[in-house]
């Protein structure tokens, strides 16, 4: 009996110390982690909305489509509309969901793609969807008529990464879904965008 108490006591002490340490570490790091994630998102938005001089995070349009909330970040150059960025995702990654950021230019072309999350993809294979050599294929493609946004095996124009067809397919699917949602709601996004009082006040449209 005494022995049992000793064992339980030691285990409890270990867990207590570990718990306290982790609680402290969590407290110390939660703000920097959040800040780093925000900075990363800001950086991604800047990269995929080239030629914008506003803060896209400051002007967003929320659209509900098929029961999912989509956030569109509006890029402006001066007062003029210069592009829009949004987050899209596919559940069909090799090992979990893949989330991406897509940036469109004002003339209706894809101008940047960035992978935000692809945790389950195999390092050296599926994880290569993050590399520019793969993602650059999407740049300059049209927003309407998205049949190109599929891997070549499925009749599209995207060269899948060798040995990583599933991951490549998931990225293409996420982009296609995103573009379709954007096209269907483009009018609504435009109207909401200009109707925003803050945007009008800041832009000072004549």
């Amino acid at each position: 009996m005494k022995e049992t108490f000793r064992l339980v006591g030691v285990m409890a002490a270990f867990c207590a110390v570990a718990g306290l340490l982790l609680a402290w570490a969590n407290q110390v790091t939660s703000d920097p982690i959040e800040e780093a994630a925000r900075a990363e998102k800001r950086q991604a938005l800047r990269e995929i909305l080239k030629g914008c001089d506003n803060d896209p995070e400051a002007e967003t349009v929320e659209i509900e489509h098929d029961g999912r909330q989509w956030t569109f970040f509006i890029g402006r150059k001066g007062d003029a509309f210069a592009g829009v960025a949004f987050e899209s995702a596919s559940e069909k990654g090799y090992g979990g969901p893949i989330r991406i950021f897509v940036g469109l230019s004002a003339d209706g072309k894809v101008q940047g793609v960035k992978v935000l999350q692809a945790d389950g993809e195999t390092p050296g294979l599926g994880a290569r969807i993050k590399e520019p050599s793969f993602l650059d294929q999407f740049i300059g493609r049209p927003v309407i008529n998205t049949r190109w946004a599929a891997v070549a095996k499925d009749g599209g124009e995207i060269q899948a990464i060798t040995g990583a067809t599933i991951s490549s397919r998931a990225v293409a699917e996420a982009i296609r879904t995103g573009l379709e949602v954007y096209s269907e709601n483009a009018a609504a996004i435009r109207s909401k965008m200009t109707a925003r009082p803050s945007a009008a006040a800041k832009g000072g449209t004549p």
């Binding site: 570990a18 982790l22 570490a25 790091t29």
Partner: peptide, 24 residues
């Protein structure tokens, strides 16, 4: 064995949190 695992898991989590926060 449980004690060893607790020690290792605590270190892994510490490394994970600090690296995420300060060497993103």
């Amino acid at each position: 064995i449980p004690c060893f695992i607790i020690v290792a898991a605590t270190f892994v989590t510490l490394v994970d949190l600090f690296m995420n926060g300060f060497a993103h």
